[in-house]
């Protein structure tokens, strides 16, 4: 299990996989329903679902003759994977804000008009 959880770090790094994750956050779905909403094939969707499932973010259940996927009801792994992206974005935003704020204070903006 440990290896699977560690692997969750990069699980939402792929845009299609993230799109599948977001679709499942809204509604449990079968492979065909997901594929209909994305510009990728059913086998590609199945492959991404397998990765998400192995990573502990998604679970599946047979309902009649189809298999329905949903986010893992234990939730915390999904929350963690999502927050990983939040922090990456937040730190990038902080970096830009901090350097810009200080540059503005010193007046190093090359476009700045002289007083």
């Amino acid at each position: 299990m440990r290896a699977n959880i560690d692997g969750a770090i990069g699980l939402l790094g792929d845009p299609n996989r993230r799109a599948i994750f977001e679709l499942l956050a809204r509604r449990p779905s079968a492979v065909g329903e997901i594929a209909a909403q994305l510009p990728i094939s059913r086998p590609a969707v199945s492959q991404h679902l397998k990765v998400l499932k192995d990573g502990g973010l998604v679970v599946s259940r047979a309902e009649g003759n189809r298999r329905v996927y949903r986010l893992d009801p234990q939730g915390v792994s999904a929350l963690r994977a999502w927050l990983d992206g939040v922090w990456e974005h937040a730190l990038t935003s902080f970096h830009k804000f901090a350097e810009q704020t200080v540059a503005d204070e010193i007046g190093t903006d090359p476009d700045e008009e002289p007083p």
Binding site: I5, L83, W87, E88, F97, A98, E99
Partner: peptide
């Protein structure tokens, strides 16, 4: 089961005092 932490870092061309202030107060 322990869940691994999230780690992130960034380096800014700003003094430490100022970086702390901008991170928290702003």
């Amino acid at each position: 089961t322990p869940i691994p932490p999230i780690e992130g870092k960034t380096t800014v061309d700003v003094s430490r005092d100022r970086a702390f202030e901008l991170f928290t107060a702003s």
